[in-house]
Simulated scan of single mutants.
Amino acid sequence: MSFQKKEENLEKKIELSEIKPVKEYLNDFLDWLEIEKGLSNQTQENYERFLKPFFKWLEIKKLENLMPNEITPQLIFDYRLFLSRQYWVKNKKNLKKSTQNYYLIALRQFLRFLSEKEIPSLSPEKVKLLKDEKERKINFLTLEQIEKLLETPDTSKLIGKRDRAILETFFSTGMRVGEIVNLDKNQIKIGPETKTLEISIVGKGQRTRTVYFSERAIFWLKEYLKERTDKEKALFVSFKGKKVLG
């Protein structure tokens, strides 16, 4: 073996020795999202929130020291199986396939980060999103697209604050448009210290269900309501002070 070949092999061994367990790349991944992808803090937080369960699952499987090159198609399949069997106690049902996809999108982006950093691992294309016969014609928004949509309204104006509050309510609660425009102010009891909120609504088929308002949704509802001067009971009103029509 030539001296040059030996030198190349030595460099390769040194590079491999510097590779860390996958869980230790989280902060590097978030930095990459900020610097290389230019994503906002909120989008980074979303990726972190949907990626951390993968690391937690590895701990449960006693694979907390798993190396990037040890991520295999079988491991991804097992994780998908884990997600499909998760029971959401709050709603008394399994995770929807659309929700499972957010966890898989975050994992796929993490693998893309490893690939761009030339860290040996599974190709991100090996992480397939779930398909549902009922949902196969639906194009899901990515986390970045949702964030851009939320930032569209001009929140320096009242109508922009209203639109931002509507969007945050929509994504936080999963309510239908018709249900949102039918909300009244007296249904949303927000105090100075309120950060999150749950209310009961009567939806399709006259069925009652509980919906959850996130901290961000509450923030924008507060920003919007404190500038309202009309006496209309509807939560969301037009620029003429009348109830918004769905």
Rank of each mutant, 00 (worst) to 15 (best):
R85L: 06
R85W: 01
R85D: 14
Q86N: 06
Y87A: 06
Y87I: 04
Y87K: 07
Y87D: 03
W88C: 01
K90N: 07
K90G: 00
N91W: 03
N91H: 09
N91S: 07
K92S: 08
K93G: 01
K93T: 11
K93F: 00
K93A: 05
N94A: 02
N94L: 03
N94Q: 07
L95S: 05
L95C: 04
L95N: 04
L95P: 03
K96S: 14
K97R: 10
K97P: 01
K97V: 06
K97I: 08
S98W: 02
T99P: 01
T99F: 06
Q100K: 05
Q100T: 02
Q100C: 12
Q100H: 05
N101Q: 02
N101Y: 06
N101F: 03
N101P: 04
Y102N: 14
Y102E: 03
Y103D: 01
Y103H: 14
L104V: 08
L104S: 11
L104C: 10
I105E: 10
I105N: 04
A106S: 11
L107H: 00
L107C: 01
R108L: 05
R108C: 05
R108F: 06
Q109H: 09
Q109N: 11
Q109S: 02
Q109R: 10
Q109W: 01
F110P: 10
F110V: 08
F110Y: 13
L111M: 00
R112N: 11
F113G: 05
F113R: 03
F113L: 03
F113K: 03
L114S: 06
L114Y: 06
L114R: 02
L114I: 04
S115A: 07
S115D: 07
S115K: 14
E116Q: 03
E116V: 00
K117L: 04
K117W: 04
K117E: 15
E118K: 10
E118R: 10
I119T: 01
P120I: 07
P120L: 08
L122A: 03
S123Q: 11
S123V: 06
S123K: 13
P124S: 07
E125S: 13
E125G: 11
K126W: 12
K126M: 15
V127A: 13
V127R: 04
V127N: 12
K128I: 14
K128S: 15
L129G: 14
L129S: 15
L130Y: 11
K131S: 15
K131A: 13
K131V: 14
D132N: 15
K134F: 12
K134D: 14
K134M: 12
E135F: 11
E135Q: 10
E135V: 08
R136T: 12
R136P: 02
K137P: 09
I138E: 14
I138H: 14
N139L: 14
N139V: 15
N139P: 00
F140R: 15
F140C: 06
L141C: 09
T142D: 10
L143D: 02
E144W: 00
E144C: 02
E144L: 01
E144H: 03
Q145H: 07
Q145L: 08
Q145I: 01
I146H: 04
I146K: 03
K148W: 00
K148C: 00
L149I: 08
L149D: 02
L149P: 00
L150R: 09
E151D: 13
P153L: 04
P153V: 01
